[in-house]
């Protein structure tokens, strides 16, 4: 029985993370959990990028004076790119959290369906298609006429 190479295991992890994250982004109803799934997707993408510069016998890309001549390094370029991507990812996360806080403040809900309904109603009201009192609950605090 031949063992699979170590790269196969790494690829399994990266692609698994991407699949799980994408399924979460597409299928989850709660907006906060959707953000968590986006973070997973991003982690999988960075793992895949690092994997593109990975050598099984390579050493860490640090130049030392006693570096052996025949030893190959891992590719440092994807590592530098991923370093940037991680930091930008936290920035995206903070922006998304600010948007989620605004949504909660405005619509008092985190459920995707409710937010979409209320948002469509708001758009219809603002563009004058529906009069403000008609579509939602019957007049606030009032009774029907006769």
């Amino acid at each position: 029985m031949t063992m699979p190479g170590i790269e196969v295991v790494f690829y399994t992890g990266a692609i698994g993370l991407i699949v799980i994250g994408m399924a979460g982004v597409l299928m989850v109803k709660n907006v906060f959990r959707m953000l968590l799934a986006l973070v997973l997707l991003e982690a999988g993408a960075s793992l895949l990028l690092i994997l593109s510069g990975f050598r099984e016998t390579g050493v860490a890309p640090i130049l030392l004076s006693g570096h052996a001549a025949g030893q190959l390094m891992n590719d440092p370029v994807p590592q530098a790119l991923v370093l940037t991507a991680i930091v930008i990812g936290v920035g995206i996360q903070a922006l998304a959290l600010a948007l989620i806080l605004r949504i909660k403040h405005r619509y008092h809900s985190l459920d995707m369906g409710e937010i979409r309904e209320q948002m469509e109603h708001d758009i219809a009201v603002n563009s004058g298609v529906v009069s403000p009192a008609s579509a939602q609950s019957p007049e606030p605090g009032g009774h029907h006429h006769g």
């Binding site: 860490a60 891992n74 590592q79 991680i86």
Partner: peptide, 8 residues
Amino acid sequence: ALMKAPDV
């Protein structure tokens, strides 16, 4: 760290 990318 196992993939020899210590800075990342």
